[in-house]
């Protein structure tokens, strides 16, 4: 009969988990499976927008560790954190660590750029995916032209942002693996569904 005085392991709330894995699924789907400019690509993009919007709302009203105020973007704190890593100090963190926080904002910002350029390219629904299916086709030719000429600045911005996102994702996974080894805590478990 031990008295549980140790703090419970971190466990992200269901909203953070839902939005994280939906965003992962959407990025995977649009990066690997749907064709750029096709209507599934656009709908997946809108779904990603919805999930990101929900996460940002949650950053204002969610429980403490999910709020922006729990992981402010701060270079000085990130540098301090790097010094701690060098010194081999590990201390408990109820939210993202300062480096992770920078990564989170970078990913969100990049997703925002991808969404903005995507919507600008496809046009808002009446032009892109309106209720009549034939309108969808209007998007595809646009995209075709852009493929040939590679002149469309929006298309280039979209692709550049996507490439940046891929770099960030690799860094993100590297960070998760590194932090898991360093702190030896269930960092990934805390993000997986259905664990207490």
């Amino acid at each position: 009969m031990t008295i549980p005085l140790t703090k419970p392991l971190r466990n992200w709330d269901p909203v953070v988990k839902l939005t994280h894995w939906s965003i992962v699924a959407a990025v995977l789907a649009n990066g690997a499976f749907t064709e750029g400019g096709s209507w599934p690509h656009i709908w997946v993009g809108y779904a990603l927008t919805g999930m990101l919007a929900l996460r940002l709302l949650w950053g204002l009203v969610g429980p403490r560790e999910a709020r922006f105020s729990a992981f402010p973007p701060s270079l000085s704190r990130a540098l301090a954190h790097i010094r701690e890593i060098k010194a081999g100090k590990v201390h408990d963190q109820s939210s993202h660590n300062p480096l992770g926080a920078l990564m989170v904002y970078a990913i969100w910002g990049t997703l925002g750029m991808i969404i903005a350029s995507g919507i600008a390219m496809a046009g808002l629904p009446p032009k892109a995916v309106s209720h009549d299916r034939h309108a969808v086709q209007q998007v595809a030719p646009d995209h075709g032209e852009e493929r040939e000429g590679e002149e469309n600045p929006l298309g280039e911005a979209h692709e550049a942002a996507v490439n940046l996102l891929y770099v960030l994702i690799v860094l993100h996974l590297g960070g998760v693996i590194f932090e898991t080894h360093r702190s030896g805590r269930g960092l990934v478990l805390a993000m997986l569904p259905g664990r207490r």
Binding site: D13, P14, V15, L18, T19, S22, Y46, A47, T49, G50, M51, A53, L54, L57, I119, G123, L124, P125, P126, K127, A128, S130
Partner: peptide, 29 residues
Amino acid sequence: KALILTLVLGCQALAATFFAIDVAGDIAE
């Protein structure tokens, strides 16, 4: 309960996003 409501909230957020973008497009048009 929180989990179930989160799933509902996720669906609502999707619907709200779709409608918001749709309405913005319609109004622009």
